[in-house]
Amino acid sequence: MPWNDNSGGGGGPWGSGGGNNNPNNPWGQRPNNNGGGGGRGPEGPDLDDVVRDLQRMFGGLFGGKGSDNDNAGGPGLFGLLLVALAALIVWLFIGQAVYFIQPGEKGVVMRFGAYDRTTDSGMNFKFPAPIETVIRNQFTEVRNVEIGRTDEESLMLTRDENIVDIDFTVQWRVDSRDPENGVRNFEFNVLDPAVAVKAVAESAMREIVGTTDLQPIITTGRTEVAASAKEIIQRTLDEYQAGVEILDVQLTYADPPAGDVVVAFRDVDSARQDRERFVLDARAYANQVVPEARGNAARMLEEAQGYRDSQIARAEGDAARFTQIYDEYVQAPEVTRRRMYLETMENVLRDSELIILDEQGGAVPYLPLDRLGNARNTQGGN
């Protein structure tokens, strides 16, 4: 074996022990303090001496015994303080006791995992971790949520039972109306604010569309629909204490759905237009006929009223004339009877072409009697 030393008292890879000199020892010979076994070998460090030196050095640093006869006092305490100070500096550095918040950010400081305070931008101080930790969040960043990428999100039913395809965008950020509570609510009350905003926005838009007819949504009522949706979204998120401020709601697309639904929608719209046209025609006919009928009814009532009044007046006049004739008849029956006969014959023969001549009166041969009757009728008409 190459490590064996047959000339020494004990073999081994590190040379023989005791006081024997071994030229094959790589560490050199250990000094012989007892004075036996020859002298020293070549100069070199001894492992046991190195260990004893380290023990004396650290023992003196921490106030222990550096040797059998030395006691360390003051230097050990000073070393302990130095080590403690170094450990404190390392802890402060690793624990980030000094931290910086960038402009536009807010820092949420948690002490042992519970909310403690909100810090503004700039240099701030806190207890090192794990006592206090800080969460940074963009406070002024405007974020967007787009709704309507799929049919499940975009197709909605209107109040007049039509389907509308709506795409809209919601712009939001961390609530700046109450910075401290807004950041706190944003961090701790909602697990995923973006998902919450999207869910609430879709629900609010369906509520608005469900109470609005199709025509305003796809034409002139988009602004009103967006404003109403924004109000409902903000009110709902405030009730959740989500720490979210809604900045704007924009309708990017609002039309009837494409494909077969469009054909059905057009049929429904055409039927609705026909219905409205029929209703308008009926109203126009009613507006024409009803006043005419009312006018005829009023005219007939007035004619009936006039006929009734005339008949009553005539009857009353006849009754009064009869009474007067009767009074005259009582006083002069023959004269009255003769007069009544003549007046009656005059009324009967007024329009007749018959000419009666007295037998004793004679007739003039050249008198045109037929023309006399016509002349009499003409004079009577005038």
Rank of each mutant, 00 (worst) to 15 (best):
M110Q: 11
V83W: 06
L81C: 05
D53P: 02
V83P: 02
L77V: 10
L80E: 05
V109H: 00
V98R: 09
G107M: 02
G59R: 03
L81I: 11
V83C: 09
D49L: 10
D48I: 14
A87W: 03
L85Q: 09
V134I: 10
R111T: 06
R111Q: 10
P130Y: 08
V134M: 04
V50E: 14
F112S: 15
L47G: 14
G104S: 12
S67Y: 09
A114C: 06
N124E: 02
F112I: 12
Q102G: 04
Y99P: 00
F127C: 06
F58M: 09
T118I: 12
A114S: 12
Q102T: 04
A72T: 08
G66S: 13
V83E: 03
V83L: 11
G73M: 11
G60T: 13
K106Q: 10
G73Q: 12
G113M: 02
I89M: 15
T119N: 11
F58Q: 09
R56H: 14
T133K: 04
L61A: 14
N71Y: 08
L47K: 11
N124K: 00
V83K: 01
F100C: 06
D49V: 13
S121R: 03
F78M: 11
G95E: 00
V50A: 13
R117P: 01
N137F: 11
T119E: 13
G122I: 02
L92T: 03
W91S: 07
G104E: 09
M110P: 03
G113S: 04
I101Q: 08
F100H: 11
L92R: 12
L81V: 13
F78S: 14
I101K: 00
Q55I: 14
L81Q: 08
Q96F: 00
N137G: 05
G95D: 01
V51R: 10
N137C: 07
